[in-house]
Design a protein around this nucleic acid. Structure first.
Lengths: 180, 180
DNA sequence: TCGCACATGTAACGTGTTACATGATTCA
DNA sequence: TGAATCATGTAACACGTTACATGTGCGA
């Protein structure tokens, strides 16, 4: 089995915080910052179906008071395990480069784990980001001075972004070290 | 007609800098920072086909010295116009929120335009980013102090990121104002 | 002769986007 | 009566990913 997608992990995480219907999830995605992982009924309902088919979540139909019968989903034991494994999985340079948003999603759900896991996550993120920054600084040298500066400047933006990431990781790590 | 995709604009931009074959483009995507817009032959060759069918690029087969005949693409007049229109198009809060990478790609190709267009782009980016930051600061208030702090901290990361964006835009704008 | 650099593509697959379809209840 | 909210879903479509297929010439 391949890993669930980012959207599926987002759903699995939200269901771990509180059992919800597809409609609830849509509302959360529409109104909160997590909405960057989209979406719309056309993505959420199929994703719920896939997760249920794989046995990571289970839905119970609630016919009691609703206008229309609704299906309340919650993670199964297997789903909870899959989520935890994902939350603890190591961070590579490649993750930082291509999936930074997914890493932040992961962090947001770290409240489901203990403080040690959070610290491991943050120090891993800081380290992987530093590695990637070292690569970027090497690559920066290829820009020559007689070309138009736009490419280099766009590149500098990338560097700024990852510097901000490393700083955030270290600042947040300090926070978790102080409060423990 | 809908707009070309980000990958198609990236290809159109690269071809505007220098006529290239699919293989050349693959190599550029693999080895330079632009590679974040992927890719692999399975994405690039179909994208070249779509652009050609839409009349935005044209390819000439070069059979002269190559090991295997190669097809060198360059933008048509229509393609150049489409690219320029895209480069000059206004920046919204929504672009900043969901397509920041695409905006940076756009900026990288601004060497094809004049300095005034670049300044417009950067001031537009700074303004749209400020607007989005104002939204984020409102949203930040919904996090309460008794919840686990992870969600709020992930959110702070987002704010840091867009602050870095606004700073970059203003710094780069100053650069272009001084050198003119 | 083996593998690498050059060079172009296709096929299967999964997934997200957009738009649509359905239907009950509450409130102005 | 009509709109909004609650609530679930499907269908068409386009796109990217991965993996595969094909073929030449050059250097070790």
């Amino acid at each position: 089995m391949t890993d669930p997608t980012t959207l599926e992990f987002a759903i699995l995480g939200l269901l771990s915080l509180a059992p919800s219907t597809g409609y609830d999830l849509m509302h959360i995605f529409e109104t909160t910052a997590i909405g960057n992982y989209s979406s719309s009924p056309g993505a959420i309902y199929p994703a719920l179906g896939r997760l249920e088919k794989r046995g990571l979540i289970e839905g119970v139909v609630d016919d009691s008071q609703a206008l229309r019968p609704k299906k309340v989903f919650r993670p199964t034991a297997d789903g909870a395990k899959t989520l935890r494994r994902w939350l603890r999985s190591g961070i590579t340079k490649n993750d930082v480069q291509r999936r930074l948003d997914e890493l932040l999603l992961k962090f947001a759900f770290h409240s489901l784990l203990d403080a040690e896991a959070t610290r491991d996550f943050l120090s891993g993120l800081a380290k992987a980001t530093d590695e990637y920054l070292a690569d970027l600084r090497v690559q920066r040298k290829i820009f020559s001075d007689d070309e138009p500066p736009h490419g280099r400047m766009a590149f500098e933006f990338g560097i700024d972004r990852y510097r901000a990431c490393a700083r955030w990781a270290r600042r947040t790590l300090r926070h978790f070290e102080e409060s423990s």
